[in-house]
Each structure stands twice: as C-alpha cells, then as structure tokens.
Simulated scan of single mutants.
Amino acid sequence: MIITNVHMVLEDEIVKGSVELENGVIKSMSDTLSQLPQAYDGENGWLMPGLIELHTDNLEKYFTPRPEVDWPPFSAMSAHDAQLIGSGITTVLDAVALGDYREGGRRQENLDHLIDTVIESHKRGVNRAEHFLHLRCEVPHETTVGMFERYANLPEVHLVSLMDHAPGQRQFVNVQKYRDYYQGKYKFSDEQMLAFEKEQVARSQQWSAANRAEITRQCRERNIPMASHDDATIEHVQESKDLGMVIAEFPTTIEAAKTSHEMGLKVMMGAPNVVRGGSHSGNVAAHELASLGVLDILSSDYYPGSLLDALFQLADDERNDLDLPQATKLATINPAQALQLNDRGVIAEGKRADLLLAHHLHDHTYVTRVWRQGKQVF
C-alpha cells in the first residue's frame, strides 16, 4: 500500500511526500505525492514511527479496575492493548512487579495471570501492538530472586529493572513525599504508616545489596538488558554502570542524569512528567534534562496517552533545542536501540512498517491511524 500527502518524521528531518509498504516493511519513500487512486490520503498529517514503550504498568489497571475487583484476563488485555494502539504505541514492554512491598498486595496475586495473558494473547495473534515483558524487581524483599528465576528464561522478557522504594533514598529522599504517596495509595493511618516505613527500611538493609548483585549477575549471563531505577547520586550511577545497566530509569537528580548520560546509560524519564511540568514525587523535571541535552528516552509510565503529547510538547518548548524529529527519537529509535530491536523505530527503507498518523486539531494532537507491520490496526 501507499500512504501519501503526509509529513514524514524521519530520523533527522521532516519530508512532505509518500511512503510505500510491502510485506510488513517500508519498501520506499518519496518526496512527491502519489497520483495513484488506491493510495491512502494522509490529509497533511504527521506520519511517525510507531512509538516504543519500555515501562508501563497500565495492564494492572484493567486486571483490577477497582479494589477487590478482578477482571477476566483476556478482556483486560484487549482493553489495555486497544488503549496503547490508540495512543500510537506499537511495541510495548508490559511491566510486572516481582517482590511485593506490601503483604497481600493485588500485584502478587495477579502476577501469573498478567504474564500468562501477555504471552498467550501474543500466541493467539489477537494483540494489535507487539507485547514483551519488563520484570521490575523490588530488591528489598526475600522472595525477589526466586521470583525472578521463575520468569527470567521466558523469551518474552526484554528488560529487567531493579528498584528500591524504601523511604529516605532514591525516589523518596523526601520522606514526607513518601508518606503522602503511600498513605494516599493504601489508606494507612499514621500508626500504620510508621510501621510500614520501619519495615521497608529494615527489608532494604537486609536484602537490597545481595539481591541486586545476584539478579544483575544472572541478567548478564542471559544477556538481558537491564535498567537502574531512581538513581540519585554519582555513586548510584557508578554502581549501575559497573553492574551492566544500559538504561537509567527516572533518575531523581540532575547530577545522576548527567552522569548516567556521560557514562553511556540511556536516561529515561516519564512522559507524564513532561505533560504535567514536573515530577509528582518532587524530583527533577524531565524538561530540565531535555534542556541540558541528557534526556534519551520517554516512557508513558502510568498514562499511555502522555507519550505522543510529550513529544510534541518538547518539540514546542523553547527551553530546549529539540525539534520534532529529535523529540520523536525519545520514543522510537532510542528505546529500540537500547533493547537492540534494530528492525523498528525509524521510517527508513527495509525497516518495519510500524507507523502512526497524527493530526493537530483544536490545540491537541490526535492519533488518527496506526499500522503495525503494514497492517492497519487503528
């Protein structure tokens, strides 16, 4: 098929013209408009590579849409998949948490259902986006290594991240922010909150270092890409580099982000951070890192629609030097390269025909069409 009358967002420029798709890949591109009557008219929209999402727990919301409510797995997966495709995301790593930091947590109960559903829905060919797995390892827990070993050999695992959410460090250097977040999430009383804090600090001191070392050792053996999480200091970053991390997820300080970037780790921040203008945890704002030239990857995190919005917002932000092709790389070729998914992430001959068409209407950018491997899926 041919898509014509579009602004193609290429790796380093925008070209008005047409693109031809064949057998699931991009066959050719032209800077002229097609005159063939069967060509699809993109109506002057933006044709961009399909977005690549490395870290979202959005699927959990569909498995447990309300507290104590479990939803049928394939219905949940279908709704999640539709939301991602409708946001222009054609490749996604569904993040699942290993090592529950709250006894009896719904995450733990749903874990096998989540993983099995991601894998089986792919086998059935019913997903519109391509789904892989991201194992989020909560290192301050006695069960984390065993749980990691249970799933680490699945071929769908494309990324492992290691995190420690204990109060007083990394994401929650500000303990009051920690209390606000968890009391709001779990409805703890002040007394319950203090007991929870004490427990998390003790678990971190007992388990984090040993679990971090063992999981990273096994990832290196299996050649699974790894990401740090919430690094805050140069020491954190140096440790991450020494352990073999390739991505720095959500560094909490400018110092950590700059050091990560300099050491070759791809710095990933949340697209909601861009859209909202800052971090909900009170940490560094993504637009600050963009202005310093040390922002490499964006993730929609908890809100899929934020990813495309953030790309256009960064491209329009006079505080940085990003144009639209440069901003687009943050959610396309950069995450693809970090995971060695070298067949996608850019509009170029021979690459996968994973594409989105967007139009700017009434001060907002809308996804109007999506193709995965040349097949229209939205």
Rank of each mutant, 00 (worst) to 15 (best):
residue 230 D to R: 04
residue 254 I to M: 15
residue 220 R to D: 00
residue 290 A to D: 12
residue 324 L to T: 08
residue 233 T to V: 04
residue 277 G to E: 00
residue 233 T to S: 13
residue 256 A to M: 08
residue 202 A to V: 00
residue 203 R to G: 12
residue 244 G to Q: 00
residue 328 T to M: 15
residue 240 S to G: 10
residue 261 H to Q: 08
residue 323 D to C: 08
residue 248 A to R: 05
residue 229 H to L: 00
residue 201 V to E: 03
residue 253 T to L: 03
residue 242 D to R: 07
residue 202 A to Q: 09
residue 196 F to E: 10
residue 338 A to G: 11
residue 289 L to Y: 11
residue 335 P to K: 13
residue 274 V to R: 13
residue 259 T to V: 04
residue 273 N to R: 14
residue 247 I to K: 01
residue 240 S to K: 01
residue 321 D to V: 06
residue 195 A to N: 11
residue 274 V to A: 13
residue 273 N to S: 15
residue 278 G to Y: 02
residue 273 N to T: 14
residue 305 G to S: 08
residue 320 N to Q: 00
residue 220 R to F: 07
residue 232 A to T: 06
residue 313 Q to L: 14
residue 327 A to T: 11
residue 201 V to G: 02
residue 313 Q to D: 02
residue 217 R to Q: 15
residue 229 H to P: 05
residue 319 R to C: 01
residue 256 A to D: 07
residue 333 I to L: 14
residue 297 I to K: 06
residue 295 L to F: 07
residue 272 P to W: 08
residue 312 F to V: 14
residue 266 K to Q: 14
residue 232 A to W: 02
residue 267 V to E: 12
residue 322 L to E: 03
residue 235 E to L: 07
residue 333 I to H: 10
residue 287 H to L: 11
residue 265 L to Q: 06
residue 240 S to L: 01
residue 242 D to E: 07
residue 265 L to W: 04
residue 263 M to V: 04
residue 331 A to W: 07
residue 308 L to G: 08
residue 261 H to P: 07
residue 331 A to C: 04
residue 194 L to R: 14
residue 293 G to K: 11
residue 276 R to E: 09
residue 308 L to M: 09
residue 257 A to L: 07
residue 212 R to Y: 04
residue 271 A to M: 02
residue 246 V to H: 07
residue 306 S to L: 03
residue 319 R to H: 12
residue 245 M to F: 03
residue 277 G to D: 03
residue 305 G to F: 02
residue 293 G to F: 12
residue 284 V to N: 10
residue 290 A to K: 12
residue 334 N to E: 15
residue 194 L to H: 13
residue 211 N to V: 04
residue 307 L to F: 12
residue 291 S to K: 15
residue 299 S to E: 00
residue 313 Q to G: 03
residue 233 T to N: 05
residue 208 S to H: 09
residue 261 H to L: 01
residue 208 S to T: 15
residue 284 V to F: 11
residue 221 E to R: 14
residue 191 E to G: 01
residue 232 A to E: 11
residue 339 L to N: 01
residue 265 L to H: 05
residue 296 D to T: 04
residue 330 L to E: 14
residue 290 A to R: 13
residue 246 V to C: 15
residue 279 S to T: 12
residue 337 Q to M: 12
residue 293 G to N: 11
residue 254 I to W: 11
residue 228 S to Y: 02
residue 294 V to R: 12
residue 254 I to Y: 12
residue 302 Y to S: 06
residue 324 L to A: 07
residue 221 E to N: 13
residue 313 Q to K: 14
residue 304 P to Q: 02
residue 316 D to I: 06
residue 231 D to I: 05
residue 205 Q to F: 00
residue 232 A to V: 00
residue 299 S to P: 00
residue 330 L to W: 13
residue 311 L to T: 09
residue 198 K to A: 15
residue 195 A to S: 15
residue 286 A to T: 13
residue 212 R to V: 01
residue 281 S to F: 10
residue 292 L to M: 13
residue 236 H to E: 02
